[in-house]
Amino acid sequence: MADGGLAMLDGGLTVLDGTLLRASVSHLPNPNGAVTGTDLLAMAESAASSTLFGLSLPENLKSVALKRINADAVSFGLTEVDEEKATSIIRNYVIALADELKDDPLVVSILDGSALRLFLDDEDDFAMLAESLFTDLDTKDKGKLSKNEIQNALIHMGVDMGVPPFSESGALLNDILKKHGAVGEEELGQAQFAQLLQHILQDLADALAEKQVVVIQNIKVINGSKLRKVLADEELLDDVIKRMIKDQNVNEEKSGSIGKIRGFLEKYGLELGLPSAEANEAVVLLYDQVFSDTDKEQNGGKLGINEFGMVVKDILKKFAEQLEANPIFYDLES
């Protein structure tokens, strides 16, 4: 992670792990007098959204944050809260949002027009882009496209090229298309198509520079936060170790093995905050590193019941340390 907890990934992706929200707590807005719970939450969510580059907070994130402060959305919304208590609730709610993002970070694309400018500022790059889009959309090889195909061109470009989804941009894209008459069945040649697309992308880049759009990516981040909670909870950790002992049938007469511990974690690790063993090559390398180190320390030997728990705890600590230093990212759609 980058210093401050805001990591920039390849492809212009940004990780939101709660650090920015936690830093904003000292300058949150203060209610002026008593407010309803609904207004209070709206105030807190607006402040949090502003801190997170204008991100529209996901419903599941808000729901979990409410649970963290022991509030029910419906009943709390109808409650009138005095000014002093309201200030405390706003603070606790934003901290709850930050805590949830620490446990389950969001990966987002911040679309501010800069990616589009890269194409627009280079004539050759834009010409290649327009030609490629025209060819892809001209499925009947007519050499003509209707104006309404411009919308499909924007969809083809997508977030990777700096174009927000229609569902995330409100009326922005539709308004720009209407402004430039990019609707209807009137047909355009390739040069006309490229010219119209250029004007639309220029307007879109200007609009995004003025008000960026933040799009959540379907990428999971495993940073060891959940695993560290397991390690900090002696009762929960003891339950995990007992499950492993039962799984391997370890007792005074039968030893366990490091290989079987790996098999157990590959099968049930998600429950503990480990990445799916099938996620990607980085996860395989992580498992190899942790268990290679453990094998060396234990000389590849069998584990008696008295040392089994200590070895499991040590393995989980190694995973937590590695994930904190180098979080695992994987695409949930792949």
Rank of each mutant, 00 (worst) to 15 (best):
M1T: 06
A2V: 03
L6F: 04
G11D: 03
V15K: 01
L20Y: 06
N32A: 12
V35L: 14
G37M: 04
T38Q: 07
M43Y: 14
S49D: 00
S50N: 13
G54I: 08
S56R: 11
N60R: 07
K62C: 13
A65N: 14
R68K: 13
S75K: 07
G77R: 02
G77I: 06
I89F: 09
V94D: 04
A98L: 01
P105L: 06
L111Q: 00
S114W: 07
A115V: 11
R117G: 11
F126A: 07
L133P: 04
D136G: 04
L137R: 13
L137Y: 08
K147L: 04
E149P: 04
G158Y: 14
N174M: 06
K178F: 08
G181A: 08
V183K: 14
G189S: 10
Q192F: 05
A194I: 03
Q195T: 14
L197R: 02
Q198P: 05
Q198H: 15
A205R: 04
A207K: 08
L208G: 00
V215R: 00
A232F: 09
E234C: 02
L237S: 05
K246F: 06
V250H: 05
I261A: 09
R262G: 14
E278G: 15
A279N: 02
D288T: 04
F291R: 09
D293E: 14
T294V: 12
Q298C: 11
N299C: 14
K302S: 15
V312C: 04
L323D: 01
N326V: 15
